[in-house]
């Protein structure tokens, strides 16, 4: 799509584009290209010699138990975060969309956690689940549950999932609410007159009409869980205990920054790029198709 009426000029538009293009090239294409290039290189332990190894870094990754563990953790973590955050948000949005007293206040009180940084969300939940100072953590101890997310991998995963999902509910809530409000009232009234009770109305009319929103949010939530939650994991568990909460993005950081294994880290970055591009492409295809709703 483009405009019919435009200004003439060649130098000016290029000039206007320069800032954005410069930033994009220097901080996007250059590093992305470097990542691809480095992913084919390998350095020796002292960083003295670098050799070209083609796809060996990738092949090594797929045979690396730690990497596969991180991939599996990512699957568990992302699907749990997405399921929890989407489910809770849809439920709350459906409630808040009803004509009730105080709907506006409820809405405000449900959207603010969007502003909380993932790492900060982790710290807030740490105050609650910490085994020695946390309200719930101590309560667990008191009733005989052996609760310490610092040594128990499953508990650690539960913690990061809760903190990451908690923060994302608001975002989903806003979109679900907007989606609900864009369903024409008359369609719902037609369903009511056709004899559909609220529960049935939800599953046969509202939910199908929300499915484009839900799909869009699913992709956004997966991307969020893949990347933005680095802060949650770093602040809460540092990938531990024993790699139990190490996700793909966390491993990129560990291998690149702590282990200084640039070749492997770059290869991991490239894999992540492919994943995001695939997710985004799927989403765009889907959006194209749903436009007419």
């Amino acid at each position: 799509m483009r405009k019919k009426v435009i200004f003439r000029g060649v130098a000016l538009p290029y000039l206007l584009l320069v800032p954005q293009l410069a930033v994009t090239i220097v901080f996007f294409f250059w590093p992305a290209g470097m990542a691809v290039w480095q992913s084919t290189l390998r350095q020796d332990a002292f960083g003295l010699r670098t050799e070209f190894v083609a796809f060996e870094n990738f092949l090594d990754l797929f045979g690396d138990a730690l990497y596969l563990n991180a991939a599996w953790n990512t699957v568990i973590f992302s699907s749990s975060v997405a399921a929890l955050a989407l489910g809770a948000a849809l439920f709350l949005a459906v409630q808040a969309d009803k004509q009730i007293r105080g709907a506006g206040l409820y809405k405000t009180l449900l959207i603010w956690p969007y502003a909380v940084a993932p790492a900060l969300a982790a710290v807030l939940w740490l105050f609650i689940f910490h085994p020695s100072i946390g309200l719930v953590g101590r309560a667990f101890g008191a009733i005989g549950i052996d609760w310490d997310y610092r040594v128990n991998g499953g508990q650690a995963m539960t913690m990061v999932v809760i903190a990451a999902a908690w923060k994302q509910v608001s975002y989903n809530f806003i979109f679900f609410l907007a989606g609900l409000q864009s369903i024409p009232t008359s369609v719902l009234e037609a369903a009511a007159i056709d004899g559909a009770r609220p529960f049935r109305r939800f599953w046969t009319v509202i939910f199908p009409l929300l499915s484009p929103t839900a799909f869009f949010l699913l992709v956004v939530n997966l991307v969020y869980a893949f990347f933005d939650t680095f802060g949650v994991i770093h602040a809460l568990t540092r990938g531990g205990p024993g790699n139990a909460t190490e996700t793909l993005i966390y491993k990129v950081y560990v291998d690149g920054v702590q282990n200084l294994n640039f070749g492997s880290s770059a290869a991991q970055s490239v894999i992540l790029m492919v994943i995001v591009i695939a997710l985004t492409a799927v989403q765009f295809r889907f959006i194209e198709r749903r436009v007419h709703y």
Binding site: W30, V223, Y253
Partner: peptide, 13 residues
């Protein structure tokens, strides 16, 4: 591509 994905090479840049 979120910044997290290309974080190490960006750091090197």
């Amino acid at each position: 591509l979120p910044v997290e994905v290309r974080i190490i090479p960006t750091f090197q840049v």
